[in-house]
Computed example of a mutant assay.
Amino acid sequence: MQVALVTVGDELLAGDTANTNATWLAGELADSGVTVARVLVVPDEMAAITENVRAYSDTYDAVIVTGGLGGTPDDITMAAVAAAFDRELAVDELARADVEETLDAIAGDYPDIDVDVTAEATIPAGARPLLNRGGLSPGCVVENVYVLPGIPGEMKTMFADVADEFDGDTTARYLYTDRPEANLIDPLTDAQSQFDVRVGCYPDRDAGHNRLKVSGEDPAEVDAATEWLLVEAGASDDPDDVERVRAGEE
């Protein structure tokens, strides 16, 4: 399964807010064997959201969109996603009931809150609503596009409700070596030519080692490539081994 992530927000592009949603979602999806094929940040602009959601929906198995839900003028994600599928916006009664229930629950803490319930409960016509158990604004699923809030806590809670809809066959193993990255070019190239895997090298200056990631859809190939690299790249599957060798303990 291949998934694209579209994170919406001028604040992300300006560097005012770290894009932790994309990082967290990528990790969750990878743990489920899903390949995250694209991560895109777009501004709070109708055309940018609509065009990219439409294109990614056609290209990948699923698209997850985060951000731009709510009642402020820059919250245009629902309208943009609706436009991507040539759908009108419509009030979803299940979403409306959930918004009203949430407002009743917080009325004592926020007695002066002024929320347009109809606007909050409006999603693309025919979409499946995703109730916001961590906040107010609902998300939705339109065809293969999942629309989630941008607030990290709300996004994580809502994703938990649909997480079992994301499943893939990619498996990965991690190795560690203190060999310089330049000395790893040949063994890593050879591993990718001999086995049906992808191999990435990620230097960790603070830890004093390089982390190797071996991934693929055939667990046997991943295991074979891993065993090969343990020898040819002088690697270990335990980062502590690298520290012990460097300290002269082995």
Results as ranks from 00 to 15, higher is better:
2 Q>Y: 11
6 V>M: 12
6 V>R: 00
8 V>K: 04
13 L>D: 00
15 G>H: 15
16 D>S: 14
18 A>D: 15
18 A>P: 05
22 A>W: 05
26 A>H: 13
28 E>H: 05
30 A>L: 10
31 D>G: 15
41 V>F: 06
44 D>C: 08
44 D>R: 07
45 E>N: 08
46 M>G: 10
47 A>R: 13
47 A>L: 13
47 A>W: 08
47 A>K: 13
52 N>W: 01
54 R>E: 06
56 Y>V: 01
56 Y>P: 03
58 D>I: 07
67 G>H: 00
68 G>V: 09
74 D>L: 12
77 T>S: 08
80 A>S: 13
85 F>Q: 02
88 E>A: 13
95 A>R: 00
98 D>W: 07
101 E>C: 07
102 T>C: 04
102 T>K: 11
103 L>K: 04
104 D>E: 15
109 D>T: 14
111 P>M: 14
112 D>E: 15
114 D>G: 12
117 V>A: 08
120 E>C: 03
122 T>C: 09
123 I>Y: 06
123 I>L: 14
127 A>V: 12
132 N>S: 06
132 N>R: 04
135 G>V: 13
139 G>C: 09
140 C>H: 10
140 C>I: 13
146 Y>K: 01
147 V>W: 07
150 G>C: 03
153 G>I: 07
154 E>S: 04
156 K>P: 02
157 T>F: 02
157 T>W: 02
159 F>I: 11
161 D>W: 03
166 F>W: 09
172 A>R: 03
172 A>V: 11
175 L>E: 08
175 L>I: 10
184 L>G: 00
186 D>H: 08
188 L>C: 00
189 T>D: 12
194 Q>A: 12
198 R>M: 08
205 R>M: 11
207 A>P: 02
209 H>Y: 13
211 R>N: 05
212 L>W: 01
212 L>E: 01
214 V>E: 03
215 S>M: 15
222 V>F: 07
228 W>L: 07
239 P>A: 15
240 D>T: 15
241 D>W: 07
242 V>K: 04
242 V>W: 10
244 R>G: 05
245 V>C: 01
245 V>E: 03
247 A>V: 15
249 E>P: 04
250 E>T: 12
